[in-house]
Computed example of a mutant assay.
Amino acid sequence: MKKLLVLGILFFYFNNSFAQEERKIPFSVAISSHLIKYNQKIDAAYQDRDLERAEFLFDSLVTNHLNGTYMDNFNVYPLKGESISLEEYEKPIFLITSASWCVPGIGEIPALNDLADRFHDQIDFVVLFWDTKENLKEKVKEYTQNIKLVHIDEKTNQDSYIINKLKHALGFPMMYFMDSNKKILDIRKIVTHHSSETLSNSYSIHFNSLSKGVSLLISNLDLNSETSTTESDTIQNKDNRSEEERNIDEEYEIYKREQDSLNNNTKRKNN
């Protein structure tokens, strides 16, 4: 009976532990599950010229179904060297998907360059072009060296299942913010403005928008660091004693063992 009780307790413990583990839902699975209904609703919104509802539908899809999923691993291609898989990036990722025919605001790239120069030690800034290697070469001079420029030619890439979702499901240019484990923290559209904006105004508009993504990644990085520190401190101080108190207690334990040993020797001699 006791053995059955112990086995029952162990089964409950392990079953509960596994149930509490986070389910890592791939981005491709999540977007596929909701894309048909999303496209139907957003097409209707655009037909009605209801841009406010279209924005709401996009935000709702991201917030309720895509945030918290994990980006599928896929290969990208730099101008030099071999292909790189997404999982090889070890830092949190600020990913922008674009193409050579996309026309950015006049202040967008300068604002992104400034943020990358400042935060590249903590974040991997990656701009992914749905394009050929030749077209990417024309863009290099516009970006700081602290931004990783990569490309994917959809016709030749082997990861078509995720590439198709990234390129065609939500459109581009688009911003994806992921932690170091490739967990999606948020997805946002690149802000747009009228082409008549001055460089100064355009820079301010884009800097304010892009910096929100940087802040999200940095704050999440700090939160994870604090959590790790707290867990470490909890393990080390689980009995709530200070370092000095632990040292005193250890010395007392040593003294007590010595006294017990002396007393036992005395008893043996008397016997």
Rank of each mutant, 00 (worst) to 15 (best):
M1D: 05
M1G: 13
M1L: 13
L5I: 15
V6K: 05
L7V: 11
G8I: 08
F11G: 01
F12P: 01
F12Y: 12
N15V: 10
N16L: 15
N16D: 09
S17P: 05
F18G: 11
Q20W: 01
Q20M: 10
E22H: 05
I25R: 10
F27A: 03
A30G: 12
A30V: 14
I31F: 08
S32T: 11
S33F: 07
I36T: 12
K37G: 03
N39P: 04
I42P: 01
A44C: 09
A44R: 15
R49I: 10
E52K: 07
E52P: 13
E52Y: 12
A54R: 13
D59H: 12
S60C: 15
L61H: 12
N64Q: 13
H65T: 12
L66K: 08
G68A: 01
G68N: 07
T69M: 04
Y70H: 15
M71G: 06
N75I: 00
Y77T: 07
P78A: 11
P78L: 02
E82R: 02
E82C: 04
S83E: 14
S83V: 03
I84S: 06
L86H: 00
E88A: 02
E88F: 08
Y89D: 09
E90C: 07
E90L: 15
P92T: 03
S98D: 14
W101R: 02
W101H: 04
C102E: 03
V103P: 04
P104Y: 08
P104Q: 13
G105N: 13
G105I: 00
I106Y: 03
I106A: 05
A111L: 07
L112V: 12
D114K: 07
F119L: 00
H120I: 09
H120M: 09
V127P: 06
L128I: 10
D131W: 11
D131T: 07
K133D: 13
E134H: 06
E134W: 02
N135Q: 14
L136W: 09
K137L: 14
E138P: 02
K139H: 10
V140M: 04
K141E: 15
E142T: 05
Y143L: 06
K148C: 05
L149H: 11
V150H: 09
K155S: 14
I162S: 06
I163F: 09
I163A: 11
N164K: 07
K165S: 11
L166T: 09
K167S: 08
A169C: 04
L170F: 11
G171C: 07
F172A: 08
F172W: 03
P173W: 04
M175N: 01
Y176G: 00
M178Y: 01
K183Q: 08
K183I: 01
K183G: 00
L185M: 13
D186T: 07
R188N: 00
H193E: 03
S195N: 03
E197Y: 02
L199D: 10
S200W: 08
N201T: 00
Y203M: 12
S204P: 01
I205P: 05
N208D: 07
S211W: 05
G213D: 00
L216P: 07
I218N: 03
S219E: 09
D222K: 10
L223K: 10
N224Q: 06
N224Y: 05
N224A: 08
S225I: 14
T227A: 14
S228G: 03
E231R: 14
S232C: 02
T234N: 13
T234R: 04
Q236N: 14
S242E: 01
E244L: 12
R246E: 07
R246Y: 04
Y252C: 04
R257L: 14
E258Y: 06
S261D: 15
S261C: 01
L262H: 06
